[in-house]
């Protein structure tokens, strides 16, 4: 309510409140992700790649396999539970990027600005988060 006096009414009250909330949300994500930026640098190197060979092919033991329930996965409560616990296991920065992108529907430009990421680092993280999540689902489901 304190900022209300400064608000010059050029936009609607709703826009004003939404903008405040968005900034609060980004603050929370930034806090969580701070000091973890360094963690992402090592995932660029192919020598430390957990999932792919140097050629780019899937590593043995990491091959994606069918869950057998892809068509009805959305109705499956058990799979929901596994997905939730898999998301919790993601490193904080990956989780922030994944959540902002897939749940909060933020644009990638905005996520990069707010979390101080380069575009290529953003894509490395988005990719890694998805590959890890999928792998975690497969391990816990099949």
């Amino acid at each position: 309510m304190k900022g209300w006096e400064k608000f010059d009414r050029r936009s609607s009250e709703k826009t004003w409140l939404t903008a405040i909330l968005k900034n609060k949300i980004f603050d929370a994500y930034r806090k969580k992700s701070n000091n973890l930026q360094k963690q992402t640098i090592s995932i660029n190197g192919s020598d430390t790649d957990e999932f792919f060979e140097e050629s780019g092919h899937w590593k043995e033991g990491r091959y994606p396999e069918s869950f057998g329930i892809e068509g009805v996965a959305l109705e499956n409560k058990e799979l929901d539970g596994i997905l939730k616990s898999c998301m919790k296991k993601l490193p904080p920065l990956w989780k922030s990027v994944f959540t902002l992108k897939h749940i909060d529907d933020e644009s990638s430009e905005n996520i990069c600005v707010q979390l101080e990421l380069t575009s290529s680092n953003f894509w490395v993280i988005s990719h890694r988060a998805k590959v890890s999540l999928r792998d975690c689902l497969q391990k816990n489901w099949i």
């Binding site: 994606p64 396999e65 069918s66 869950f67 892809e70 996965a73 959305l74 799979l79 929901d80 997905l83 939730k84 998301m87 897939h102 749940i103 998805k130 999540l133 999928r134 689902l137």
Partner: peptide
């Protein structure tokens, strides 16, 4: 191909959870 199908499923599941 399996990855692509499952990636789409994960996106939908996450949306639903949220």
């Amino acid at each position: 191909n399996t990855f692509m199908d499952q990636s789409a499923v994960i996106n939908q599941m996450v949306k639903k959870l949220s």
